[in-house]
């Protein structure tokens, strides 16, 4: 099995000593993200996120399937992550590493279990037909902080995604092509964002946001906090690692909330921009069959 090259002793000391002197290799502040960029594809539901040199692509898709027998009124929603050798030599195809398992669990808890997507709205005929929404996350380039980038990509892809409009008449389900009817967006309830703190030092007293890969390799612990802009925590995961003062964790949560709000407004801006670009005729308002709904 391939193994990731460990940083040399010199590199380790260099990074750590710089952090002790409140410096980061790329000159950022401790609570500063690398430049975040989001581009939507031509299709609905394709989002490419780059955070410094980390690049993630998420694609949402939907098809009509049979709902699970124990949940006849819910649609199916799944997120699948793929860490290929393209991202790092330590990843292998079809053999999930610990990183991948933890990443997909985190995305699942953040987006699925927090109820960001209204799965009941995916139901078409109770117990017989429903939409199955699926997001595939591909990591194209790995330079640290995969979690935040992946979570942002998933949320962006889902918010951008539109599924085909449907109608049911006399028990017959019709799925319309985009030419017949304007596709409809998903029932979206709130947008959670992951903010990951990396912890350094014997006492775990140095905490930084958006660690690069070099920083991740020498960190002694991490804490991922997922929040939405309404100030709700969707998930916290500090899975072991060096002990950190409880007060420091509370401070981290406070800063994470402001970051989540920034991410949220950035995404809103990008979505509005994209909608405007697509709406050449200026008649999108008229074509939509969407009802007013408070979305987050």
């Amino acid at each position: 099995m391939p193994r990731e090259a460990e940083p040399s002793l010199n590199e380790k000391t260099f990074v750590l000593q710089a952090l002790q002197e409140k410096l980061r290799l790329d000159g950022r502040e401790f609570d500063q993200y690398r430049p975040l960029e989001l581009t939507f594809g031509e299709e609905y539901g394709v989002a490419e996120v780059s955070l410094g040199k980390t690049k993630v692509l998420a694609k949402a898709s939907a098809e009509v399937t049979v709902p699970y027998p124990d949940r006849p009124l819910d649609g199916v929603f799944q997120i699948s992550t793929e860490l290929s050798p393209m991202a790092s030599p330590a990843f292998e195809v079809n053999r999930p590493t610990e990183t991948e398992v933890l990443l997909s669990r985190l995305l699942e808890k953040t987006v699925r279990r927090s109820g960001a997507l209204d799965t009941e709205s995916l139901c078409l005929v109770a117990g017989q037909k429903c939409w199955s929404v699926r997001v595939d996350v591909h990591v194209l380039s790995h330079d640290g902080n995969l979690i935040d980038a992946c979570c942002f990509a998933v949320v962006a892809a889902l918010r951008h995604f539109k599924k085909a409009d449907t109608s049911i008449e006399g028990g017959v389900l019709t799925v319309y092509t985009p030419a017949e009817r304007e596709p409809v967006p998903l029932g979206w309830l709130h947008s959670p964002f992951c903010v990951t703190w990396s912890v350094f030092g014997e006492e775990g007293d140095i905490a930084i946001l958006d660690a690069t890969r070099a920083e991740e390799q020498v960190r002694v612990g991490s804490c991922t906090i997922s929040l939405n802009r309404h100030g709700e925590i969707c998930q916290i995961a500090k899975l072991g690692g060096t002990a950190v003062e409880a007060i420091a964790l509370l401070n981290c949560t406070g800063i994470a909330l402001t970051k989540a709000k920034e991410l949220s407004s950035y995404l809103d801006g990008k979505l509005a921009e994209d909608a405007k670009r697509r709406d050449k005729s200026g008649r999108a308002e008229l074509l939509t069959a969407e009802n007013d709904r408070v979305t987050g």
Partner: peptide, 22 residues
């Protein structure tokens, strides 16, 4: 000590609740 090794929250909760719970 007050030093936290593991902190896992899997449910939706207001940020203001965190301090009391912690």
């Amino acid at each position: 000590s007050d030093r936290v090794i593991v902190l896992v929250c899997e449910s939706r909760v207001q940020v203001s609740r965190l301090e009391g719970m912690l």
